[in-house]
Nucleic acid binder design. Sequence first.
DNA 1: CGGATACTACGGTCACGGCCGTAGCGTCGA
DNA 2: TCGACGCTACGGCCGTGACCGTAGTATCCG
Lengths: 249, 249
Amino acid sequence: MTGHGPYLAEIAHLMGDPARANMLHALMDGRALTAKELAYIAGVAPQTASGHLARLMQGGLLAVAVQGRHRYYRLGGAEVAAALEGLMVLAGSQPTSRKLPSRVGAELSQARTCYDHFAGRLGIGIHDALLSGGHLSVADGGYGLTRSGVAVFAELGVDPAEAASKSRRAALRPCLDWSERRPHLAGSLAAALACRCFEAGWVLRKKDSRAVSLTEAGREALASHLPGFRCDEPDAAIPAARAPATAFA
Amino acid sequence: MTGHGPYLAEIAHLMGDPARANMLHALMDGRALTAKELAYIAGVAPQTASGHLARLMQGGLLAVAVQGRHRYYRLGGAEVAAALEGLMVLAGSQPTSRKLPSRVGAELSQARTCYDHFAGRLGIGIHDALLSGGHLSVADGGYGLTRSGVAVFAELGVDPAEAASKSRRAALRPCLDWSERRPHLAGSLAAALACRCFEAGWVLRKKDSRAVSLTEAGREALASHLPGFRCDEPDAAIPAARAPATAFA
DNA sequence: CGGATACTACGGTCACGGCCGTAGCGTCGA
DNA sequence: TCGACGCTACGGCCGTGACCGTAGTATCCG
């Protein structure tokens, strides 16, 4: 009857501890961190963190890469990141919760990584430009690239065929953005594009954060190869003038 | 730094209790249930359930409609359902977890409701037929209807304009199916279509379950107005011959 | 107006699990 | 080979919260 409810509870319970939630949140950018770093982030002693990490491993939420005496932990897969985003959509809209600390919140809303692809207004800008330019088609399981879309990616330095062949997961699919409540692009192709942007110096990681920043070179590169690309900078205007997010229906 | 991790933990913690998870799971079909029904489903006393429901309400995961001396609880919104589906994707793929009870699992995989729309192979069949028939366009935030799509909905007895005007949420958007790992249609239009299918007797609810069944009349109606519609019935063949679900990549 | 029903509020009990102490194992550098 | 480092395993302390009993409030019915 209520057959697999308990499994859902198991997973949610794993994510429901503040220390573990902080760890998972920190790993959302797709990097791999050591147990000690995660312990610091979670605000607990290394011994405690070790226990948490073991439980997260057993639940399949984390994967580990051993290198010498270091153990690098990363998220268990894109599905885990997707599930966490789903929860963040809710967490961001809690009426009881105070709003994000404005400084950090503004940076994250502007541009950040979501596991291995871009989110925030940067991610949405890329998504919308590709869509309105007719570079995306709706295909089985998510988006596909039209012929012009293949060309756009090639101009940006990403070979769609190569990126798709490396992984079995969907090449492109929509992912709901927790800060903007609109979809951005996820999937192996979106990951490859993000990787390219970092390599080319178009986007820079900020330290100790999932926030990233679009450089002037990046803005030009994207705008020239992707007509219609816009990435609003509300900070340029009055920060408080953001449109009130429509409360969820 | 790790600013809003705690909010994520709050939400996940709410979902992480077996009793609450069972309640949420039972509400995924979009129906509204009373506290007593939910108590029975969760396997706890009504007093205990009352406390759980209050906490879920405060967290925004549930909404309530008071009618006389009954309080009907339902999910707080489509975002809540989406977040739960994300977790189910993980819960369904846990190597440590036993598989679904085969009988129930087969029924649910075939056709079920997901909050207020159809999921399972039925939902995917509708989604794919609309897509391959050119009745859907990719629009900002999800899908849109092409001119032929409007006609298809009208023939099926659903007025797209009316359905869209009733609610401010997206009319059509993809929703990841936890059993099939492919998108089906969500949104107010998908909900209206599901409602129409129930009214017309094309789809019947099964008791005490989110599973539904497509009647012969329903199969004919969908097939005639929606060329290309297919809804596999693996039960017609050897039940055990289901394709082994590809373990998550 | 009484009784039944549906639900919520309060209080006591108890167990799960988070926390850090110390201790033990494996890896790296000198 | 030895010491430093990263991490894990075990044990005891303690707080959070799930549970149900009893009691109280609101609504419907006869």
